[in-house]
Each structure stands twice: as structure tokens, then as C-alpha cells.
């Protein structure tokens, strides 16, 4: 049994966004959050590496971001999905891409599990 305060990740495939994760992912999430401003998106697209350096990201974080490894960023890096979704605005990834990746499926496999496919790259 998980305690309300501790969240021992007892729900399979679930990484509850706790204070510990928020502390670990603070820089990563701050970087992703910053992309809600158009000038920051422009700065990132012009020079991804330089922009990430200006946000104080580690090499591990920069590599995962450039590889689009959402799974590791959330499961190991303290990423908050709501902040990381801002990264979709500067990459070609959409919500179903990252969902399929986190489930270990192709996008096609994932979409077959849905009742109605509203948008392929939603």
C-alpha cells in the first residue's frame, strides 16, 4: 500500500509527480516551461544547444531532449508531462508520438487501441 504522502509508484506504469521529482527536474521543467514564450522558442530553434546551456541543463538532459526520449525524461529525469509538452511546439512530436514511445509501441499500434482517432498526431 502506498501512503498518501509517499507515493511508492505502486500503480504500474505510473510516475507520480512528487516533490522529489519536481526538485530533480526543476531545471528541465523550467526549460520546457520557458518555451511558452515565442522569443524563447525562436532562440531554441536557432541554437538548441546554446539555449539549453543557458537554462543550465546537464549533458544527460540535453542528450535526452535532442533524442526526443520523453520516457527517460519523465521516468528518470523528474520531467513533468505538462511542462514537457511545451517541447512539442519546437519539435515535430505530438502527444500520440510520445504516448506510443512511453508504451513501447509504434504509433500505428497505439492508435489501434483507441475508440476514435481524432487526430493522428494529436
Amino acid at each position: 500500500m502506498s501512503k498518501e504522502t509517499g507515493h511508492s509508484d505502486h500503480i504500474p506504469g505510473t510516475f507520480v509527480f512528487t516533490g522529489q521529482r519536481s526538485r530533480k527536474g526543476l531545471n528541465l521543467n523550467r526549460f520546457a516551461y520557458s518555451l511558452h514564450e515565442a522569443n524563447n522558442r525562436e532562440a531554441y530553434l536557432k541554437d538548441p544547444e546554446g539555449y539549453m546551456d543557458s537554462c543550465g541543463l546537464s549533458q544527460w538532459e540535453k542528450t535526452r531532449i535532442l533524442e526526443g526520449d520523453w520516457k527517460s525524461l519523465i521516468e528518470e529525469g523528474g520531467g513533468s508531462v505538462y511542462m514537457l509538452l511545451k517541447m512539442c511546439a519546437v519539435t515535430s512530436a505530438g502527444l500520440t508520438d510520445l504516448g506510443a514511445q512511453m508504451r513501447g509501441e509504434t504509433q500505428e499500434e497505439f492508435l489501434k487501441t483507441r475508440n476514435v482517432v481524432l487526430r493522428e498526431n494529436a
Binding site: 521516468e75 510520445l98 512511453m102
Partner: peptide, 9 residues
């Protein structure tokens, strides 16, 4: 809804 982990979806 769940938007992360392999329980996504």
C-alpha cells in the same frame, strides 16, 4: 486519462 508512463492512454 493518463498522459505518461506505459499506462499512457
Amino acid at each position: 486519462h493518463q498522459l505518461h508512463g506505459n499506462r499512457f492512454g
